[in-house]
Computed example of a mutant assay.
Amino acid sequence: MRRTGEVALAARESAACGGVRTTATMDAMIPTLALNDGNRIPAIGLGSWPMDEEAPEAVRTALEMGYRLIDTAAKYENEEAVGRGIAESGVPREQIVVTTKLRGSEQGYEEALRAFETSRKKLGLDYVDLYLIHWPLPRLDKYVDSWRALVKLREDGVVRSIGVSNFTASHLDRIIAETDVAPAVNQIELHPYFTQADMRAADAERTVLTQSWSPLARSASLLTEPALEQIADHHGVETAQVVLRWHVQLGVLPIPKSASPDRQSLNLDVFGFELSESEMAQISGLERGRQSHDPDSHEEF
Rank of each mutant, 00 (worst) to 15 (best):
R3E: 15
G5L: 05
E6F: 11
V7N: 11
V7Q: 14
A8Y: 04
A10E: 04
A11H: 14
R12I: 00
A16F: 12
A16Y: 01
V20N: 13
R21G: 12
T23Q: 14
T25D: 15
A28Q: 10
M29N: 15
I30Q: 09
P31T: 11
D37N: 03
N39Q: 12
R40L: 12
A43W: 11
G45H: 01
L46S: 13
G47H: 00
S48P: 00
W49R: 11
M51P: 05
P56I: 05
A62L: 06
L69M: 11
D71T: 05
A73W: 03
Y76A: 05
Y76W: 04
E80S: 09
A81T: 07
G85W: 01
A87D: 12
R93G: 02
R93I: 10
R93T: 07
E94P: 09
T99P: 04
K101I: 02
R103P: 04
G108K: 04
Y109W: 12
E110K: 06
E111A: 15
L113C: 08
S119D: 03
R120G: 03
K121H: 05
K122S: 09
G124P: 04
D126T: 01
L130V: 08
L132E: 01
P136Y: 00
L137V: 11
R139G: 02
R139A: 13
L140I: 00
D141G: 11
D141R: 13
V144G: 02
D145R: 03
W147P: 05
R148N: 01
L150N: 11
V151P: 02
K152F: 05
L153E: 13
R154S: 03
R154W: 01
G157A: 10
V159N: 08
S161N: 06
I162E: 10
G163Q: 13
N166I: 06
N166R: 03
F167C: 02
S170N: 08
S170H: 14
H171I: 09
D173R: 14
R174W: 00
I175C: 03
I176K: 08
D180W: 06
V181F: 05
V181Y: 04
A184L: 04
V185L: 08
N186H: 01
L190K: 05
Y193I: 00
T195Q: 07
D198E: 13
V208M: 07
Q211A: 13
W213T: 07
L222A: 02
T224I: 11
A227T: 15
Q230A: 15
I231W: 09
D233V: 09
A240I: 02
V242E: 09
L244W: 12
R245V: 02
H247P: 05
H247E: 07
V248Y: 12
L253M: 14
S260I: 04
P261H: 09
P261G: 09
R263I: 11
L266M: 13
L268S: 08
D269P: 01
D269F: 00
F271N: 08
F271Y: 10
E277K: 03
M280K: 12
A281S: 15
Q282L: 12
S284D: 06
L286I: 00
E287K: 09
R290S: 10
D294V: 12
P295F: 08
S297V: 13
